[in-house]
Design a protein around this nucleic acid. Sequence first.
DNA 1: ACCTGAACACCGTTCAAGT
DNA 2: ACCTGAACACCGTTCAAGT
Lengths: 205, 205
Amino acid sequence: MAPADQQRIVAAARELIAAGGVDALSMRKLAAEVGVAPTAIYWHIGSREDLLNAVLDAMIGDLPPIAARGSSPRARLVSVARSIRDQVRGTTDAQQLAAELGRTAELSFPGQVALTREMQAAGVTGSDAAQAVRAVLFLVGGFILLEDNFAHRQPGSRTTQELWDALDDDTIDPALRKAMAKPANTDTLFDYAVDRLLASVLGSM
Amino acid sequence: MAPADQQRIVAAARELIAAGGVDALSMRKLAAEVGVAPTAIYWHIGSREDLLNAVLDAMIGDLPPIAARGSSPRARLVSVARSIRDQVRGTTDAQQLAAELGRTAELSFPGQVALTREMQAAGVTGSDAAQAVRAVLFLVGGFILLEDNFAHRQPGSRTTQELWDALDDDTIDPALRKAMAKPANTDTLFDYAVDRLLASVLGSM
DNA sequence: ACCTGAACACCGTTCAAGT
DNA sequence: ACCTGAACACCGTTCAAGT
C-alpha cells in the first residue's frame, strides 16, 4: 500500500466531501478510503479540525482569480460583483468549511480586493470607497445567504411564495401581494440591486 | 416524577440550547434533564429532527412583531430594516435551527411583510415594489451573514483587517488600503447602505 | 517514522418487554 | 398510555504497543 501521506489523505477527504458533503466525511470512513487504520490519520494530519483546515487550504489554492470585465468603471464593478457571486455559488463545500472553521474572511478577501481596485478606478477614494465597497459586499453576501438557504430548503417546509399565498392581509394591495407571491428571478434581481446600489454610491443616477 | 409530556421536553430542550447552543442538545442529555430514559423522548416527540422543529415552533411563537417607527415613509422603511437586523441578531439559535431545518423563509416572512407594507406606503406598487423589497431584504441578509461570520470567527483565523495589512499591492492607493484595513462600524455601515439603496430605489436622491 | 488494536466516552435510533 | 433496557451502528480521540 502506498504511504498515507498528507497529500493522499487530503485528496481522499476532498473526494468524500465532493461525493456527500462535509457531513459525509468521518475520520473512520476516510481511513478506510485511504486503506489505513483510523488512528493513522491522527499521526499524519491531527484532529478532524486540522484535517478540515488542510482541505480548505487545498480548495483555496485551486480557486481561479476574480477577473473584472468591461471598459467602463461601472461595468467592471458589476462584473466583479457577479464573479464573486458565481464563484461562491460554485464552491459551496469550501464556503461551508470556511464558515465552520471561521475562515470566511480569507475566502472572501480576493473578491474584496478586486472590488476595491475597481472602485478606485471609478474615482471613489479613501474612506468613501471603503464604505462603498463594503456596502456592495454586503449586498452580494445577502444574495449568497438567501439563495443558499433557498437551495438547502427541505421538501416539507413552506416557501416564501406559499406563505404569501396564504397571507390574509387587507392592508397590502392584492396586486402587490401577488407580485410577492411570484417566485423571484434572482439573476435579474441581483443585477437590479447591484445597479441601484452602485448608482446611488457612485452618485450617477 | 412529573409526566414527560411534549411541553416539558421542548422547554428542557430550549434550556439546553440556550446554555450551550444547538450542538449541545443531544437526545441523551435531554432525557437526563427531563429525568427519563433516552427512548422515552422518541415516544413523546419522535426523532431529533422532530424535536428541533418543535423547538423552532416554540421559538417562533415567542417572537415579538416587527414594528415600523417614524412618520415619513422613508424613515419607516429604514426602521423596519433595522428591526429585522436587530431581531435576527438577538435570535441566533432560532436562525441556526431554521437554517438547519430549511425553514428560514418562515422566520424571515414577518419582516418581509412589514417591509412590503411600508414600501406600499412609500408609493411604490406592483412588481416594482416586489423587486425593491427583495433588494432591501438581500442587503439586510448580507449584513446578517457577514456579521454572523464575523462573530463566529475562531481565535486562530485571520481577520479581514489583518489580511489588508498584509497585502502588498501597488495598484491600490495606500490611503484606500488603510481605510479597508480599519475595522468597519457595521451600525453606521448598515444605515449608510440601506439609505443609499432606498434613495436609488425610491428615486429620491 | 509509521501504523495497529484496544479502549473510552460519546452519538441517534429501534424494538421487545414491562406496568 | 407511558417508559425502560438492551442492542445496533455509528462517531472523535488517546495511548500503549508493535515494526
